[in-house]
Design a binder for these strands. Structure first.
Lengths: 141, 141
DNA sequence: TTTTAAATGCAACGCAGTTGCATTTACATC
DNA sequence: GATGTAAATGCAACTGCGTTGCATTTAAAA
């Protein structure tokens, strides 16, 4: 299932199939949301895979384009499997300050800023929201 | 001129007038754009004001609400005097990858996301653009 | 099976920002 | 103007995320 998907993704992007990469990718697939390096390491368990190698594997995923990096505001980076087409990486991310989770909000259209401001070349857009997610807001204050 | 403005801003927000705070505020006023801690320290010159104190002064400015923090993607934070009303801190920031400058794009309306997604409490929005600014794009590739 | 470029582990490093604590200072009160 | 006090500062050490260098191992092509 997910194992096979992970292997396929690596193959598709001409990345070597290593135990570490497969494990990391599996974690990202199962999570279905952005995770920090720390999150990933704690799911993998210590001593299984070197933290530095986790960084390097993630970097290779980002470079290949099937994982994207989300900056949160604590100077940490989150990594998420990117299910959208490569050309539309851009969608808002919502950070819940109560449960700490990060969600990709893919329903929203981000306005085409480039049309509004002359001579600006927009190469990357990032939309970041913070507050309380629907799950937490329902379960009382 | 600017000196007086700096003093007024501090007074308005009930912050003690200290040489360091006035100097930092002056730097921000004159810059007219977001600056990093490093930028500020290098304008102030070494040995005039302790780097840690610069951080603390900036924090007090942010807490008072007349300076806001902009996250760029190099894990550094930029600080900018906030000329807009407190209630509308939110506007896009454009980072030019060529000249490295950061601009506040105050003309743009950010869509009201909160209406679209039920039960989400949006407390903060951040819009981040990256590319080449009009100035750099005009002066050749 | 052999070869080789890429991936890994380990140790040390870099940098932005924070914390603790003793000292100094702005400013309110007398 | 002198005094008292909470806030601001300087200094040193620390934290946490991420990176770099280098020797070793390994996936996968030949």
């Amino acid at each position: 299932m997910s194992d096979q998907l992970a292997a396929e993704i690596l193959k598709e992007h001409s990345l070597k199939q290593t135990a570490g990469r497969l494990a990391i990718l599996l974690v990202l697939i199962k999570a279905g949301k952005p995770l920090s390096h720390k999150d990933i390491c704690s799911v993998l368990g210590d001593h299984f895979y070197d933290p530095v190698s986790v960084y390097r594997s993630l970097d290779s995923f980002v470079e290949a384009g099937f994982v994207h990096r989300v900056e949160d505001d604590n100077r940490t980076r989150l990594f998420a499997l990117c299910t959208c087409e490569k050309s539309s990486h851009c969608h808002p991310h919502f950070f819940c300050r109560r449960c700490g989770k990060c969600e990709c909000l893919k329903k929203f259209d981000i306005p085409a800023i480039s049309e509004l401001q002359q001579d600006y070349i927009v190469e990357e857009q990032r939309y970041y929201l913070k507050g309380v997610c629907s799950c937490c807001s329902k379960s009382g204050s």
